[in-house]
Each structure stands twice: as C-alpha cells, then as structure tokens.
Amino acid sequence: MEILVCVKRVPDTSENEITVNRDGTDIEREDLVYSVNEWDNYAVEEAIRLRDTGGGSVTVVSLGPEETEEVIRREMAMGADKGIHLMDPVFEGSDGRGVAAALKAEVEKGNYDLVLTGAQADDGAGQVGGMLAAMLQWPFAALVNHIEMSGDGILKIGREIAGGNQEFSEIRLPCVLSIQTGINEPRYVGIRGIRKVASLEIPVHGTAELGIPPEAVGEVGAKVKRIDYFVPQLGDGAEILEGSQEEIIDKLIELLKSKGGIK
C-alpha cells in the first residue's frame, strides 16, 4: 500500500506554558519547544506497521514554515520512506480548508491508497482529514483506533466512540482516516536515527508546484479567521494553597478530611 501521512509541527503543550503576547495577536513563541503533533506520531507509526506487514511505502507530508523540515525528518527517522514539505509564503493564515486544499493537490500528484491524519492538532479543530477526504471524494473515518486489511481494497477499521466503546466498519480504499492516540505504541526515535536521515532530500512544494491558485489558500481563501488570543477566566478559579510545603499539606489534609476525601 502507498500511504501518505499528514503531520504538523506544533508547540509541545506538555513541555511549554502557552501564554498570549502583549497585544493578543499571537501566543508567545520565543521559547517554545516544538514537536510533531502527538496524534500524527501515532499515524506515522501505524503507517510504518502497515507497510512492514503488507509492503508498499510511507510518505510524510507537512505544510508549514522552514522549521517544519525538522519534524518531517524526525518522522523519516521513525521509518517513513519519503518526506514532502509544503511551503509557500501565501500559505500563511490558511484555515483548515486552505491546508486541506494544498494537501489535496499533493495527494493527487501521487498514487496513494491510504491517507492518514491525526484526529486533531494544536488548534483542536479536527477538520483537515475530513475536509481532505471530501475534496478528494474519498471515504473518511474519524478517530480510528484499529486498522487491518480485509480482502482486496478493503480495510476493517475500529473507531473510538463515547465511553471507550469501539465501532467497527469496513471501508473502501482509497480513503482518508484520522487516527486516535492509543492505536499503537509509537517507537522511540534517537539522535542516531535522526542523523541517519539528515542528508536525505526533502522536496519543497509551493502553490506553483501544486498547481493551485494562491487565492485558494492563506488569509484570502479563509472563511474562518482568528481575530485574537486571550486567556480564559472561567468561574472563580481554584483557591491556590500558599505557604511552605508542610503548611500546604496540613491545610490540604484538613480540607480533604472535611470533604470526606480521607477515610
């Protein structure tokens, strides 16, 4: 199977405090640590496993600025065969549809049987996979946590639904699946693995190479636009216990006892 996996470079939220800049136009990006979107890493692992059992190839594609190359390379170090970098100044300010439109053009340049995306990325939208599928007029399934081959041109998939229950279906290839975390255990990538792929060529495609009109992407093409960022103030917030650790612990034990939290 020829598999394309869409990956995004995002700030690592478990490593960083995300704060809003002074005028609310963006988050503070100075000291952020970036990595590959958690969901996408599971998608790449799944693609590698499918290739290793059924043959074929895995290509990772990512749309983003210069630095995006580092996550493409990381996923190649994991075991992807090829990387493609979609970069063009006019991509700036794209909404989900713009990103999907660029990815669609890239998919059509290849000969893919299966496209995987993450279930969601840093903006929490979970939109690019479903839009991409619809643009390609390929079938789609969201939140996939199980994939197996099931006869010719058919996959048996599990989707995670409420309460941790699993919905099984059969889906026809070619299709787009959005991958939920927990589908596998992504392999570890060490420095050495990254060094091995350091010199591999990663082609860069812009709107010209993709053959899409610049106005289909970027801020101009966007129907949804961000105005500003702010930090939510919900309710009163927690009473933060202050003092030395001992004092805090004593206070906490007292509170827990009064609420029935310590039996």
Binding site: R97, A125, G126, G129, A142, R159, A162, K223
Partner: peptide
Amino acid sequence: PHEHFGMDLAPGLSVALEAAYLPD
C-alpha cells in the same frame, strides 16, 4: 455537537455544501 459523530460528519459536510466550517 463536536463529539465522535460530529467530528466524523461535519468537516466533509462543509466541503460538500461549499460552506464554511467552524469547529468546536
């Protein structure tokens, strides 16, 4: 609603309807 069914149906529906998509 933005849950497992909405996430499955909605993004593609917006493309099919040539409409904007505002998620979550």
